[in-house]
Simulated scan of single mutants.
Amino acid sequence: MTHHTGSIPDTHRATDWRDNSACSQRGVDPDVFHATEADHAALREARAVCAGCPTRVACLTSAYQEHDEWGIRAGLTPRQRKIILKKADRNITRAVADALGDPTVLLKNLYWQHTQQAGRHRVWTDHRDWVNVRGKPFTVNQLAWRAIHGFAPEGHVVRTCEVDKCVADACLADDVTRKQATA
Rank of each mutant, 00 (worst) to 15 (best):
A88I: 08
A118M: 04
K179M: 10
T55E: 15
E45W: 04
D16R: 15
I72F: 00
K87P: 05
D102Y: 06
V163D: 01
A147C: 01
A74N: 10
G27H: 02
V105G: 00
R146H: 04
K86E: 08
G71S: 15
Y111R: 07
Q113C: 12
Q80D: 13
C171W: 02
D102A: 06
D29Y: 10
V133M: 00
G52L: 09
H4L: 13
G52K: 08
T125A: 07
L60E: 01
I148S: 07
A118S: 04
E66A: 13
F138A: 08
G52Y: 09
P103A: 12
S62G: 15
Q80I: 10
W124I: 06
C23T: 02
D10G: 00
H12N: 10
R44E: 08
V96L: 09
A48E: 11
K165I: 03
R56N: 12
R134E: 13
R128T: 05
G52T: 10
P78K: 13
R79C: 12
R128H: 07
E37M: 15
D126R: 07
H121Q: 02
A58Q: 15
F138K: 09
A152V: 00
A168T: 04
K86H: 08
D164K: 14
G119A: 04
S62K: 14
T125I: 10
H149W: 13
I92K: 02
A41Q: 14
N132D: 07
R120T: 08
Y111W: 10
D169L: 10
A118N: 04
I72C: 00
T15N: 11
A97H: 01
R44M: 05
S24P: 00
L107G: 00
H4D: 14
W130Q: 12
H12Q: 11
V163N: 02
T11K: 11
T139V: 01
Q116F: 05
D89H: 01
G150M: 09
K165M: 04
D10M: 00
I92N: 02
T182W: 03
G75K: 15
R178G: 06
P78F: 14
E162K: 11
L143I: 08
F33V: 03
H12D: 08
Q117A: 06
R134T: 09
A118G: 02
A35V: 14
A97T: 01
N20R: 14
A35L: 14
H12V: 06
D39Q: 05
W70C: 14
A181D: 13
R159F: 01
Q65I: 12
R178E: 05
A183P: 07
R18N: 03
P9L: 01
D126H: 04
T139G: 02
T36G: 09
T5A: 06
A168N: 04
P103R: 07
C166Q: 05
W130A: 09
R134D: 13
L43I: 10
R159K: 05
V131S: 08
R90D: 11
R18V: 06
T77L: 13
H3C: 04
L106V: 05
C23S: 01
V163E: 02
V28I: 15
Q80W: 08
D98I: 07
R73W: 14
P9R: 03
R13C: 04
V131F: 10
T55F: 11
H40P: 04
W70K: 15
Y111M: 07
T177M: 02
Q113W: 13
V131G: 06
A183Y: 11
H34N: 12
G150H: 09
V57I: 01
A173T: 01
A51F: 06
L76E: 05
D98M: 12
H121Y: 01
